[in-house]
Design a protein around this nucleic acid. Structure first.
Length: 533
DNA sequence: AAGGTGTGCAACCGCTTGGGG
DNA sequence: ACCCCAAGCGGTTGCACACCT
């Protein structure tokens, strides 16, 4: 719809149409006073005439001040309704139509991390509205529950389970119980392996800064984990390092002006069969306890490819911590374990790890449902970090706005000066980045927004998470040569040979993440702060 | 063809948040 | 500190359409 010189006449006509039609359609919600009379506001579906009026109003006056729309345009709608109509339907650059498989995957990922934070997801899906995403999700929930399918792909669930296990172990660490640190070690090849070096543990009174024992972790190749959190605050917290390396990395996606895109395949030959996701984010699927969300988490996860294991090996320097993530509804566990989809041996591993029995063992301490030691730690952490909440929220918004506006991450613009090291940027990671893209049963090879054929396992990782980008930036634990080597090894050789290092818009503070250890607990950055609701 | 049911989506509603006075 | 208002957010509802029996 366009506005021309004779907009005035057109609008007059529209207003007349509006007035006549509004008396026909009679459904009304409220009333307001304009001029001398009490005006009944219209409800229900919008007409094209109303749309035209609203568009005209916004063009003239800009967005905002929605309650003035009625006064200035003659629209018989409340401001709220106008805002909604504009945001969901009339706003420029809105995508219409069904979600692409990439978008669907992205939503699933985001929901597993954010829960029902539709607006945030919408901010990360250019052209999509929170309402659309919400409707999509609700539909999905209905559909899958009817079909008896799990809400999340099994591997997403597994990741959550793994996180819980790590938390369990970490909790033991924090409570000085090192006997079970190796509880996940020695499982069958390819399953979660959890190792540590207790000899390095500092089990004494809390030093400043506290240190964790070195705990290299190899995770299930397809669900690798590499976290760095500050979950274990001050009950004898120890220096805690975990490293993880996989042999394959998948590229991240590009953040473009209008979409978050997976990279073109031709860019990354031979990388489409196995994927590894570097995700400095936080997995909090269905977190019923938002209070627990404030513990920093720095995640590197490695979803894999069904039946196609990649080996993971330890590497020093990388770090990991995690929070409890046993946040699936009870029914979900039933679904996971009873799903007929889990038939392959690979899935049998999933089944093993995801089994309720298994989960219950580790949930005693780690689950938000269970009041345990960790919860106390969490509360303490929350108290420490609560002061950062508002700045985080603002930073997130700025970050998203920056991405949307320019198509690139302008770290310098979103960096939160109050954070020890570019807290906001890291927070953005946490909120933006998928942890695992796994085998979405409902998705298939699909097209990217650019029309490229896209493997269904290709992650929707933002550009700045591309391994090559990370390599170039030294972002992964900063100056850790090992970390860089690990990525280098993971990257396809050809990629290294043929591609020049990608210029990285690295946030100024990101590299200082290498020195996380340097921060005392009371001054640790909030890497994973989620928006409490 | 008619009625029932499922589905997707637009819109509404109530609550929360943040800013300004 | 309090109140008011605008805006945002998430949950819910209602409607139109498609599909099935």
């Amino acid at each position: 719809m366009t506005c021309s010189e004779n907009d005035g006449d057109t609008l007059m006509l529209l207003k007349e149409q509006l007035e006549s039609s509004s008396t026909d359609e009679g459904s009304c919600c409220g009333s307001s006073t304009t001029g001398g009379g009490r005006v009944t506001l219209k409800k229900g579906p919008w007409t094209t005439a109303e749309d035209a009026l609203l568009i005209s109003y916004v063009r003239k006056h800009g967005e905002g001040n929605w309650n003035a729309v009625q006064r200035h345009s003659g629209l018989l709608r409340c401001g709220k309704s106008c805002r909604l109509r504009w945001a969901n339907h009339l706003r420029p650059h809105l995508k219409k139509g069904a979600f692409s498989p990439e978008e669907e995957q992205f939503i699933i990922q985001m929901h597993s991390k954010m829960g029902n934070r539709w607006a945030r997801m919408a901010a990360l899906l250019p052209g999509r509205t929170d309402n659309e995403i919400k409707n999509y999700w609700n539909t999905r929930v209905k559909r899958r529950s009817r079909a008896g399918l799990p809400l999340y792909p099994p591997k997403l669930s597994l990741q959550t389970s793994n996180e819980n296990q790590l938390i369990q172990s970490a909790s033991e660490l924090s409570s000085g119980n090192h006997q079970n640190i190796g509880v996940l070690q020695g499982t069958m090849n390819g399953t979660l392996e959890f190792r540590c070096h207790p000899h390095k543990a500092n089990s004494g009174p809390l030093p400043s800064p506290p240190r964790f024992p070195d705990i290299p972790v190899t995770a299930l190749p397809c669900h690798g984990l590499g976290y760095y959190t500050r979950s274990f605050l001050n009950s004898g917290a120890n220096h805690f390092k975990q490293t993880w390396e996989s042999e394959t990395f998948s590229p991240g996606c590009h953040v473009n002006q209008n979409s978050i895109m997976v990279p073109a395949f031709e860019e990354l030959p031979s990388m489409n069969s196995e994927t590894v996701y570097l995700n400095p984010g936080l997995g909090y699927p269905y977190d019923p306890d938002p209070e627990n969300k404030n513990l920093a988490s720095f995640i590197c996860s490695t979803p894999g490819n069904p039946g196609n294991f990649s080996s993971s090996r330890l590497l020093p320097g990388a770090v990991k911590m995690e929070l409890p993530s046993l946040q699936y509804p009870e029914a979900d566990y039933i679904d996971w374990t009873s799903s007929s989809l889990l038939k392959s041996s690979y899935d049998a591993v999933d089944m093993y790890i995801q089994s309720p029995e298994n989960v219950s063992v580790h949930s005693d301490c780690a689950s938000p449902r269970n009041k345990g030691l960790l919860e106390d730690l969490v509360q303490e952490s929350h108290a420490i970090s609560s002061g950062k909440k508002q700045s985080f929220e603002k930073s997130f918004d700025r970050a998203v706005a920056a991405v949307m506006a320019s198509g690139t991450i302008k770290w310098e613009e979103i960096r939160d000066p109050t954070s020890p090291f570019c807290l906001s940027a890291v927070s953005l990671f946490n909120d933006c980045n998928p942890t695992v893209i796994s085998t979405f049963d409902e998705s298939s090879a699909c097209e990217t927004p650019m029309g490229d054929k896209q493997d269904k396992y290709t992650p929707n990782l933002p550009y700045f998470l591309r391994p090559d980008v990370l390599l170039g930036s030294g972002w992964l634990m900063g100056n850790s040569q090992d970390a860089e080597d690990s990525i280098a090894g993971a990257l396809d050789e050809n990629l290294h040979k043929e591609r020049a290092p990608v210029p990285v818009p690295v946030p100024a503070g990101i590299s200082s993440m290498a020195s996380l250890e340097a921060y005392p607990w009371t001054n640790m950055p909030r890497v994973c702060q989620m928006s409490e609701h």
